[in-house]
Nucleic acid binder design. Structure first.
Lengths: 260, 260
DNA sequence: CGACCCTTTGAGGCAAATCAACTTTGGTGG
DNA sequence: CCACCAAAGTTGATTTGCCTCAAAGGGTCG
């Protein structure tokens, strides 16, 4: 429980840590995703500790990151791409509880098994932390713990919004809400700092994923998107993104306002 | 940001703290709900700080605790009774995102307004903390912050389970899941430490609340409960509690297993 | 005892699911 | 470059689980 000096390698439970290169140590320092993530606002010494405790990993689309019920041995921070989190019933019915985009963490839990599964939607880059190691670090990195609390609280708020959607919205309202939620996500282009009114929704996931996220079938999702397109509220589906032609109208639909 | 000494009264933003009696200071120390709550595992000095920062409040059934959109000025710890948390659409559709029973906290958020409403279901007793004051305390009460993180994480896990229910379960499965979730809740009697197999579900809320929690109508909830009763899976509705006659069967139904 | 609220039960309608083709997209190899 | 194929998406016809509308029981409290 004593504060570790920042230089020596960490003892990893039963498994030696490989020697760290300078680039490893600087990885966190130079990370573009740091601001807005749980690694935000930390001093260089703390970042060095983080860098030493994590590994950068690249994953192709459709890769399983964690499986529901697996031993919860790791914690992840997504630095690029989109991940889907889900829970399933024995007969195969699936509910996607959220999409985690770049900058979000993943894998926190209060039991020793993951209460959800996670799979990459597209090409994903993430930092993997050993859970045990991270928990020990929390004591010495109060800012990290504070960030975690804020982040989990934000996820919980989103989950409550999604419960309203799943329990009380119509298919049309669900799809409208989904599209709005995908606005301004993954504007990883250098064109950042562009007016956030950019009406382009990032939709890297398939209809199956969207349906499982909204509690609908793929047919209903497809029909609803077609209807919105016919009404000129959204544009013809471009690849993995949808242009919003009438954001205000879509917002009205999403919140259940009578008109439109 | 300096560590406050534990004895002097806290400066409360713009508002003087009333003189504290010994009983106030001991309130937290003697609180039966402490274990299992965010106030667990703290030393006496910290508890004294907590006691000084909070007020005990009694509320009758149907009382609004916080309103969605209100300035998030307070944080609560429920010590008796049940509270419902909910979000609403402009046209009145409502989704109850959770019931908070004794021992749970309520009111954490990452914006300056509450993203949900909260109302008492029955007679409720709670401790009210000033948010601003509590945030300052967090730095000096690391155990409290750790408890908060664990608690919010648990709420998030429950929220994910509820999303699976709302998006993918049938009415029958929803009601079965709800009843199982209400088992072993509010066994505030002195008969605690009794075998947890006690098949009595605490249901202090109305059919309207249950319907808004499960994403159903009151008629469907009523019909489904009647059906389970007809099938001898649950007993005739006692006042504010339902006896589970066949827990195993109910569990099968809740998880979507084919039989029963 | 009657007014009010909550709950239960019944009859019919509808939004979304299911079932069933058909079309488009994207990748692979000849 | 294009033929081929599998996967993803779209569209239509039909079914159905739950909602809506309606009305009849219980409980409680003044």
């Amino acid at each position: 429980m004593a504060q570790p000096t920042p230089t020596p390698a960490f003892p990893l439970s039963g498994k030696a840590v490989r020697p760290q290169s300078d680039s490893d140590i600087r990885r966190c320092l130079l990370c573009e995703r740091r601001a807005g993530s749980v690694c935000a606002g930390m001093d260089e010494a703390s970042l060095a500790v983080l860098a030493r405790s994590s590994r950068k990993i690249q994953l192709p689309p459709g890769t399983t990151i964690v499986e529901e019920g697996d031993h919860a041995g790791a914690f992840f921070n997504i630095t690029a791409g989109t991940v889907k989190l889900f829970k399933s019933l024995p007969d195969g019915r699936r509910q996607i509880t959220g999409f985690a985009d770049a900058g979000q963490f993943l894998g926190l839990g209060n039991t020793d098994v993951y209460p959800f599964g996670a799979e990459t939607v597209n090409a994903v880059q993430l930092c993997r932390f050993q859970r045990q190691q991270l928990e020990a670090l929390l004591i010495d990195l109060p800012r990290f713990e504070r960030n975690l609390l804020a982040s989990v609280t934000e996820r919980l708020t989103e989950a409550q919004e999604q419960m309203l959607l799943l329990g009380r919205k119509t298919a049309r309202e669900k799809v409208a809400s989904f599209l709005l939620g995908r606005l301004a996500i993954g504007c990883q282009a250098d064109l950042s700092a562009l007016p956030e009114a950019e009406p382009l929704a990032s939709v890297p996931m398939t209809r199956v994923d969207i349906a499982d996220y909204l509690g609908l079938t793929i047919e209903t999702v497809s029909r609803t998107i077609s209807a919105l397109r016919r009404e000129k509220i959204i544009a013809s589906t471009e690849s993995h993104s949808i242009r919003i032609l009438a954001p205000a109208t879509l917002r009205h639909i999403a919140t259940g306002q009578p008109q439109a």
